[in-house]
Amino acid sequence: MNRLVVDANAPVSAEARVAAFDWTALAGDLDSYGCAVLSGLLTPEECRGVVALYPDENHFRSHVIMARHGFGKGEYRYFRYPLPDLIGGIRTALYPRLAGVANAWSERMGMEQRFPDDHAAFLRRCHDAGQTRPTPLLLQYVAGDFNCLHQDLYGDLWFPIQVAILLSEPDRDFTGGEFALTEQRPRMQSRVEVVPLRQGDAVAFAVNSRPVRGTKGTYRVNLRHGVSRVRSGMRHTLGVIFHDAR
C-alpha cells in the first residue's frame, strides 16, 4: 500500500512527505484509472486542525451553500490568500509531482498546453490570464448532504489534476459519503470509480479529461467527480486545486 507513516512527534515537511510516496506507482494509477490514492498524507492531528478552521471566516474569501446553486446539498468555503502554511505547503509540494503526468496527458491528447515544473510559475500564468482568486476549499457535509458530479475548472486556464484529502474518519465521524469518479467514454457506457478513503488519505484525480489507449490509438475521456449521500454524522474534505479562479 502506498501509505506514508508520519511520526506526530517529528513533523515532516510537505516536500519530504510528498517525496516519500512511490510516484511511479501513483502515475501508473492515474494513467490506468484516472485517480490515485496517497494514503496517510495528513496525520489525524493535522486533519482536526484543518477542520477547526471552518468556523473562522477570517481564513476564507467566500462561503457557498450548495443547494442554492444546484450543486447538491452541503456547504464549502474557499480559502483566501495567504493560505494556511500546511495547505499552501502541500499544494506547492504536490504540484511538480503531478505536472509531469499533466504534460504527458496533454501530449497524448494532442493539446498544446504545457505546465511549468514550478507551481509559482503556473500561478503567474493564471494571474496573467485574470485568474487571481485562490481555489483550495474546505467542504462540510451532514446527514443527507451530497455533491453532484461536476468539474472544477474556474476559467480558461486550469490544471488537469486535483487532490481531495478526507479529514474525517469513516464509520466514526460519518457513514456514506463515498468519493466517486465517472468517465464518459465515447460510444460506450460511463465507468464509475468509487474510491475508499480513511482520515488523512488523499486522492489525486483528473479534473476534466484524460487520455486512454484503445485498439485504434489514444482517445480522450471526460471525467466528473462527486460525493454520494452522507447517511449519518459530519464529513469534512480539503480540496486542493492548483489553478486560481477568475
Rank of each mutant, 00 (worst) to 15 (best):
A104E: 07
P84T: 02
L238A: 06
Q131F: 08
A121S: 14
L123T: 10
V101P: 03
R48P: 02
R97Q: 11
I161H: 00
G176H: 10
A16C: 06
P170L: 01
G72M: 09
G40N: 04
S190A: 12
A206I: 03
D56Y: 10
E169V: 02
P11S: 10
R210A: 07
D56R: 09
W23S: 05
F242K: 01
Q189S: 04
N222V: 13
S209L: 02
P196R: 12
Q131D: 10
H236M: 06
H59D: 12
R185E: 07
Q184Y: 10
V207M: 10
M188P: 05
R198T: 11
G233A: 07
I165G: 00
T182V: 15
F21V: 06
N222W: 12
R108Y: 03
L42R: 04
D31H: 07
E75Y: 07
G239I: 07
R210K: 08
S39W: 01
E15I: 09
A36H: 02
V195C: 03
P134G: 03
R108W: 00
Q113W: 03
L123P: 00
C35D: 08
V230T: 06
E112A: 12
A120H: 13
L41C: 01
N103I: 01
L38R: 04
A164Q: 04
A120G: 14
Y95C: 07
Q199N: 05
Y219W: 14
R61I: 07
V207Q: 06
Q199R: 06
G88P: 03
R124Q: 12
D201R: 06
R210V: 05
R198I: 02
A99T: 06
L41V: 08
G177F: 01
M109C: 07
R185T: 07
L94D: 03
E46W: 00
L149Y: 11
M1C: 14
I161L: 15
L83A: 09
A245W: 03
T175C: 10
R91C: 08
L238S: 01
S32Q: 15
A14P: 05
Y54F: 15
L94G: 00
A93M: 14
C47R: 02
G88E: 01
L94P: 00
R97M: 08
C47L: 00
R229G: 08
D152K: 10
L223Q: 14
R191Y: 00
Y78M: 11
P186D: 09
A93W: 12
T175E: 15
F79P: 05
V51I: 15
N9H: 15
G226Y: 03
H59A: 12
G110F: 09
R246H: 14
E57Q: 12
Q131H: 08
Y54V: 01
L86W: 01
H225F: 02
D117H: 15
E75S: 12
H243N: 10
V207F: 04
L149S: 01
H69D: 04
